[in-house]
Design a protein around this nucleic acid. Structure first.
Lengths: 128, 128
DNA sequence: TATAAAGTTTCCAGTGAGGGGAGACTCAAG
DNA sequence: CTTGAGTCTCCCCTCACTGGAAACTTTATA
């Protein structure tokens, strides 16, 4: 199967699939006589796996690690769980940070009249 | 005042201050005879303002806009408030997205034994 | 069969917001 | 006078792609 069909099956842009091949994340299983990348069902599954992992916010290095665990039938589920837990901790940290940011900004916005006069607690707040 | 002192006062890396000058976000008020950038108190205030705005997650374009409002003594507070409200809406959207991600991943992790056996609902979940 | 359209290839360049470092210059202190 | 710190410009690197150009292959149509 050519890259276009593979991309469609994995719901990824062609450019992205090519990029994943280039960085050795998901390689095509070969090349045609004319140089076209050829993908089989196994490669498609890996592409889908990566697409979904990326959508969960895993970076490429984490995807690489997850993919190796995905491919390794003898790995322990604890290995995967540890990666997931680390990612959840990252997400919690990010969520906390964003919540604080949101509340502080919201507080500033609430105290701003938002009218035609120039006094603005938001600007004052940002000026420190 | 030289760039090093200005950077220290604004609590920004020198590289960042130089970058802000390069993109015309916060320009030094002149150059010395030998070519050193020179910053005055007004430039320092702008640097601090940008540093704080960036820490609130505003991008460079938004900082540019906020800075012009900061400099414009005749602007209406409503103009500022609108920018802040848009940023809050962005933050809310991002928060919602991250919360969903976190919960879904957490759910997967909870259903994984995390032991020495290879069965792993996380991998299965990521595989779709 | 000829040709046009679509698909694919490689390579180059850019994104946001700087970071790292090289090599040259300037300034202040000892 | 020298040394060390500060600064200058210039270039490449990041991350995860995205876009475009020019050349090639494959497929569909006339």
């Amino acid at each position: 199967m050519n890259i276009g069909e593979a991309a469609k099956r994995a719901k990824l842009p062609v450019k992205t699939v090519r990029y994943y091949a280039e960085i050795g994340l998901v390689s095509p299983n070969g090349r045609s006589a004319s140089g076209y990348r050829e993908y089989d069902e196994i490669a498609i599954r890996k592409l889908k796996f990566v697409a979904r992992s990326r959508s969960f916010g895993f970076g490429i290095p984490a995807c690489r690690e997850l993919l190796s665990l995905f491919e390794d039938r003898s790995r322990e589920s604890a290995d995967v769980k540890n990666i997931a837990k680390a990612r959840i901790a990252e997400l919690d940290e990010k969520l906390l940070e964003l919540r604080l940011l949101r509340d502080e900004l919201s507080h500033l916005a609430d105290s701003c009249a938002g009218n035609a006069r120039p006094d603005c607690p938001i600007i004052d707040g940002l000026a420190g």
